[in-house]
Design a protein around this nucleic acid. Structure first.
Length: 874
RNA sequence: GGGCGAUUAGCUCAGCUGGUUUAGAGCGUCUGCCUUACAAGCAGAGGGUCUGCGGUUCGAAUCCGUAAUCGCCCACCA
């Protein structure tokens, strides 16, 4: 037995078993006649590194997949990565800049070659890290959103939607990221509260040199683009302004005063400056009143020639400078502190500039119908369900999706411009040429005459196809794989991408396959630190996952994360959780050492206590199997884990093993030994989805296994909720044993000294053999007698006492009994109050009334027993 | 500004269609133990007027209303 160390060493076994699983292709799945169970991984950024969110998310997926596999399903977890257009392009640009290379000096091809180099170098690191966690993905299927199949799928889908009239090109006000130099979708803009200023500026009325109005703005630099001032027509303060013009301060331009109820009279001065090119609302006003639109910004956020002054200076520098200049000219009324929300780019954090530009859009309103319904009627189930509200709200107020990005890294838009204007959309160049010839009526056109739209598509325009494109279901819609695996079973993801990804996948599922992409969506929480802060690089409060695995073992970390992670709840991460996981591994390890260390005797008969212990634990095991299965079905994963944890630690190790453990140096009988190994086997199977490595290691030690066999593919036993009487009896027994142990502790009686136990009352003696062993009794005296110097306790209505050599502290005993009596009397009073209430007896269900009567009689019995004990003492 | 969710032991959370011994778990705490699988352990113990107030009901942690606090999402008030 000493061949096993007293401590479990994860490092020794983890790599070994992962290699074994890979070698035997145990993660691999192909369509067959079993039921499929499929999860597609939320593809991490190809050049990203593993963080705690990934750990949580992927642990959950692995638990689900491993459990399904053990339930006999054909389980497939498809891994892959996302090209993450903006962030990857930004990383490549930064790397090139560091090398002194400017993106603008490179051709598209040259840049892409650098980007692919970068992707090949760093891409996939994160997938290697997932292996350390034990992720049982089918790595043979690893996909990338920019590989051939996925790219062609994107192109095909774009053309399909364009043909259907669901994609259009047009000039719209979009969110411009002046750092990434691209348009963004509404979802990619994060509004943050900022302390800024509200500037009150004077606009003099044209032709009335001493009269001015005051306009409040947070962005004084945009006055360069002002083309009107607007007031509310119902505002009596400004009726005199009607039909007049005012002079934009500093700029000197004369602009009209327009009247529109859009303006809030209460806000600021009730006067709004209108800059149609740089504000969404102003754009709307400009449209309505046919105002001139002056775009005063370059793409990078500096002032353009059209601004007329401060040209080439950054917008924020101009803000400071123009205020100084306005101040000097006496055009500033006042400046106030002001808190407002400012849009930032999700990827670069740059302040978003609303900008009028030509972009591609998807008409969402025509697509969302089936997707709304599916979640509404739980055809797709959200766990937890509260996210249904969020989803519905977004889907019903959805706006068109801006899908073009002014980037090179991504899927280039399949649109080609004709020399004489206009464009065609096609899946290939050849097809584009044919269409172009047809459209222009010019058969002499060649590819060289066509110019492809240089823009790329939003990353999410490829990820929304993920559950379909992974099985090539776009290009080859009837292939065996997509037919078999789609719709997938469960999706596990963080709630922050519910709109970016989840909602759009559902939309795509119905649009391109007329079927939901998955049955359940499990939303994880956010991993926070102990004091509730989000984990972030800048705070430095995020532990390195691989370091945690090195310290606690992959199983320990997995368990630590799962212990504190009910669906949708944030988890307050603390290393102590992983410690608990590591300790549990050690517990399992040592229980195994004990059992495997036993010598087995074929001649010894099975002791009565072992027989009872085996019967009891067998029943409890079956009950717990059923309970865990039920909890997992409801995605209550941490509760399921906790149930197995308690079963193993408390019931199996502390009770069962102690009951059947042979005396030191003695062998164990064959029957008990076999049962114990059987229990151990089942326990390991129950634990395996949560803790794959240690369970595989011990399972292979448990019995002879053929090469290629694995607990991974062993079947999960099915349990049944019995509630066998022996379980309830055992609970009472545990109380009696604890009573004796408490007396030992208080009276400082060593465990090895056998004791006499006196019983007063209706004691059930079927488990006495267990009682004798666990409490180390020499005898049980059931003659209803009690020694004068005995310490006693009451279980149910039975008094148990242990005679002591020394005298007992009568006062203390009495105090304890009286406290108990008081509690019981109080309890009885509440029960009797209920029972004496006629309306209760008449209107409560019979079962409930019967239960109250049972409580009443139990309490009375117990009170009698306590009173008897008190009397005996005094 | 709208909407959603939460508030139960020191901490993290269960408590599902109101009734299952005047509320449960894990961790932490306290006490005693190096007992021969495990001190990353064993045995035992303590700890809560279920955020406040009002209501419905024979009966409320659970349902309703209200207040407070916290969190999340959405929204174009300059």
């Amino acid at each position: 037995m000493n061949e096993l160390a007293t401590k479990y060493n994860p490092a020794e076994v983890e790599d070994k078993w992962y290699a074994y699983w890979m070698e035997h292709r145990l993660f691999h799945s192909e369509p067959d006649d079993r039921d499929p169970y499929c999860i597609v991984i939320p593809p991490p950024n190809v050049t990203g590194v593993l963080h705690m969110g990934h750990m949580l998310n992927n642990t959950i997926q692995d638990i689900l997949i491993r459990r399904a596999r053990m339930e006999g399903k054909n389980a497939l977890w498809v891994p892959g990565t996302d090209h993450a257009a903006i962030s990857t392009e930004a990383k490549v640009v930064a790397k090139l800049t560091a090398e002194g290379i400017k993106k603008t000096d490179l051709s598209r091809e040259e840049f892409l070659s650098h980007a692919w180099d970068w992707t090949n170098k760093y891409g996939g690191i994160i997938l290697e890290q997932l292996k350390r966690l034990g992720a049982s993905c089918d790595w043979e299927r690893t996909a990338f959103t920019m590989d051939d199949i996925r790219s062609r799928s994107v192109t095909k889908v774009f053309c399909h939607l364009y043909e259907k009239g669901l994609i259009y090109r047009g000039v719209r006000m979009v969110n411009w990221d002046p750092q990434a130099l691209t348009a963004l979708s509404d979802e990619e803009v994060i509004y943050k509260e900022e302390h800024s200023k509200l500037f009150y500026l004077r606009y003099f009325v044209e032709g009335e040199e001493d009269r001015y109005i005051v306009v409040a703005t947070t962005r004084p630099e945009t006055i360069l683009g002002d083309t009107a001032v607007c007031v509310n027509p119902n505002d009596p303060r400004y009726t005199w302004l009607k039909g007049k013009r005012v002079i934009v301060p500093k700029v000197g331009r004369s602009v009209p005063v327009i009247m529109d109820e859009y303006v809030e009279m209460e806000f600021g001065t009730g006067c709004l400056k209108v800059t149609p090119a740089h504000d969404v609302n102003d754009y709307m006003l400009g449209d309505k009143y046919n105002l001139e639109s002056i775009d005063i910004f370059n793409d990078n956020g500096t002032i353009s020639e059209a601004g007329g002054m401060y040209v080439g200076i950054d917008r924020f520098d101009v803000r400071r400078q123009i205020m100084k200049d306005l101040e000097a000219e006496g055009l500033v009324e006042k400046v106030e502190d002001y808190v407002n929300k400012v849009g930032h780019s999700e990827r670069t954090d740059a302040v978003i500039e609303p900008k009028l530009s030509m972009q591609w859009f998807v008409k969402m309103n025509d697509l969302v119908g089936p997707a709304i319904k599916a979640v509404e009627n739980d055809s797709i189930k959200f766990v937890p369900a509260k996210f249904k509200n969020t989803y519905r709200h977004w889907m019903t107020t959805i706006k068109d999706w801006c899908i073009s990005r002014q980037l090179w890294w991504g899927h280039q838009i399949p649109a080609w411009f004709l020399p004489e204007g206009g464009f065609v959309v096609a899946e290939t160049e050849e097809e584009a040429l044919l269409k172009a010839i047809e459209k222009s009526g010019n058969p002499a056109l060649t590819l060289k005459d066509l110019r492809r739209d240089p823009d790329c598509l939003d990353t999410w325009f490829s990820s929304w196809l993920w559950p379909i494109s992974l099985f090539n279901g776009i290009l080859d819609p009837d292939n065996e794989e997509i037919t078999y695996y789609y719709p997938t079973a469960d999706l596990v993801t963080a709630p922050d991408i519910i709109f970016f990804w989840v909602a759009r996948m559902i939309i795509a599922g119905y649009e391109f396959r007329n079927e939901k992409p998955f049955g359940n969506v499990y939303f994880t929480g956010i991993v926070r630190d102990k004091i509730g802060r989000k984990m972030s690089k800048s705070l430095g409060n995020s532990p390195d996952p691989l370091d945690l695995i090195a310290r606690y073992g992959a199983d320990g970390v997995r368990m630590g994360l799962m212990l504190a992670a009910p669906a949708g709840n944030d988890i307050m991460y603390d290393d102590s959780l992983c410690e608990q996981g590591r300790n549990f591994c050690n517990k399992i390890w040592n229980a195994f050492r004990l059992v495997k260390g036993w010598e087995v005797s074929d001649s010894d008969a099975q002791p009565e206590s072992s027989k009872l212990g085996t019967e009891w634990f067998g029943n409890l095991l079956s009950d717990t199997l059923a309970e865990v299965s039920d909890l997992m079905g409801k995605f209550r994963i941490s509760e399921a884990l906790m149930a197995v944890y308690k079963l193993f630690w408390d019931e199996f190790s502390s009770w069962y093993l102690e009951v059947v453990k042979p005396a030191y140096g003695k062998p164990i009988d064959r029957a008990t030994y076999e049962s114990t190994l059987g229990f151990f086997d089942t326990l390991l199977r129950m634990l395996h989805p949560f803790m794959p490595f240690i369970t595989e290691e011990l399972w292979q030690h448990l019995a002879e296994r053929k090469d290629g066999e694995s607990i991974m593919t062993a079947r999960m036993p099915e349990g049944r909720k019995h509630d066998a009487p022996i379980i309830a009896k055992f609970d009472i027994l545990k109380e009696i044993i604890a009573g004796v142990r408490t007396i030992r502790l208080k009276k400082q009686i060593p465990n090895k000294n056998p004791l006499l136990l006196e019983v007063n009352g209706q004691h059930d003696d079927t488990l006495d053999s267990v009682l004798m062993k666990m409490a180390n009794l020499e005898a049980i005296d059931k003659s209803d007698s009690k020694s004068p110097t005995a310490a006693s306790f009451i279980v149910g209505a039975v008094e148990y006492s242990v005679p002591l050599e020394s005298s007992i502290n009568v006062e203390e005993e009495l105090k304890k009994l009286e406290a108990d009596l008081k509690y019981q009397q109080g309890f009885l009073a509440t029960v009797e109050k209920k029972l004496s209430n006629e309306r209760f007896v008449n209107s409560a269900p019979e079962k409930v009334v019967a239960l109250e009567r049972k409580k009443q009689s139990d309490a009375k019995e117990k009170i009698a027993a306590i009173e008897a004990a008190i009397q005996a003492l005094s």
